[in-house]
């Protein structure tokens, strides 16, 4: 249910095991309330497409049945898989939605995906699709389409605090102020864009060497990669891959990623160390997004 105030409509919505936060500043409250409800429906629809936990979702059906024979895919899931496979390639496997129940990244060799015929078959016994945080980014991008469809120019859409999609401006035409948690730097300003943070903690890093390809010797508890990009899904892909590859590798690949993804990756911000003792900062964290 939305909260209507004199300055806009605020609504929270539980989906994808997280809380989406919708803030639409403006005067036409009836219109904005209806748009907020449409956004919630669209988020739910994205969950029914991508969730590996919902027994009614298309992804669940693929994970259960595509080992037996190639299955027909919807146009939409075909598009999502196509984007994820491309990202797997341009991140050199660092972003991978093909996993097993233990969370290991298995790569696309175990998948037969025909994006023209729109079919998929899973050839490895334990392989499955787990879209993870990409699902949140995908949902936010679909929400952005709803905003455009109904001429809502100013919006702040959040997914669980680690994903934001910003449009237009906050109240009175001022840009959105972005403050990154765990970093004592000044907030920076953003008008249009998406942000994603991928983070992990000491226990995860030590136990998950198969996921990270760098030795975070300086890490003392907190690792975080924040990316600003043109789309929320791309921000999720890049922040996930950044966390896996490490800051040096990300620095060398930024322009190539941008070229290969066909979309703009605006920022990459790296934090590691104890939350109160951030050791290093890379890229344009303090600059305003062009």
């Amino acid at each position: 249910m939305a909260t209507l105030s004199s300055s806009g409509v605020h609504q929270t919505h539980l989906a994808m095991a997280t809380e989406f936060d919708i803030w639409l500043p403006g005067d036409d409250l009836e219109h904005l309330d209806a748009v907020a409800t449409r956004i919630c429906e669209e988020i739910d629809r994205a969950e029914r497409l991508l969730s590996r936990f919902d027994p009614a979702s298309e992804t669940y059906r693929i994970n259960q049945q595509a080992r037996e024979r190639p299955l027909a895919l919807s146009v939409e899931l075909t598009g999502a898989l196509r984007e994820c496979r491309a990202a797997y390639r341009w991140t050199e496997g660092a972003f991978d939605v093909v996993t097993n129940p233990a969370g290991d990244r298995l790569g696309w060799d175990s998948i037969e995906f025909d994006d023209v015929a729109r079919t998929v078959a899973i050839r490895a016994p334990s392989a499955m699709f787990d879209f993870g945080a990409y699902g949140k980014g995908y949902a936010l991008d679909r929400a952005a389409e709803i905003l455009a469809q109904y001429s809502v120019t100013n919006a702040r859409l959040g997914g669980g605090g680690s994903s934001w999609l910003l449009r237009g401006s906050a109240a009175r035409g001022s840009p959105w102020q972005v403050k990154i948690d765990s970093w004592d730097g000044a907030p920076f300003e953003l008008f249009n864009g998406a942000l994603s943070t991928s983070a992990t903690f000491r226990g995860d890093v030590i136990d998950a060497d198969t996921r990270t390809r760098w030795n975070p010797a300086d890490a003392r508890g907190h690792l975080q990669c924040t990316v600003s990009a043109q789309s929320a899904a791309l921000a999720e892909i890049a922040s996930t891959a950044g966390l896996v590859l490490g800051p040096a590798a990300v620095a060398g690949r930024m322009s190539a990623w941008q070229e290969q993804s066909g979309k703009r990756i605006k920022h990459a911000l790296w934090l590691w160390g104890e939350p109160s003792q951030i050791h290093s900062l890379i890229f344009h964290a303090r600059s305003q997004v062009p």
């Binding site: 249910m1 939305a2 036409d28 009836e30 219109h31 309330d33 209806a34 748009v35 409800t37 449409r38 919630c40 469809q149 109904y150 001429s151």
Partner: peptide, 13 residues
Amino acid sequence: RHNSWRRPVPVPR
């Protein structure tokens, strides 16, 4: 449910 059941209209009032 707790919503208006109202669909947004793509043109201004």
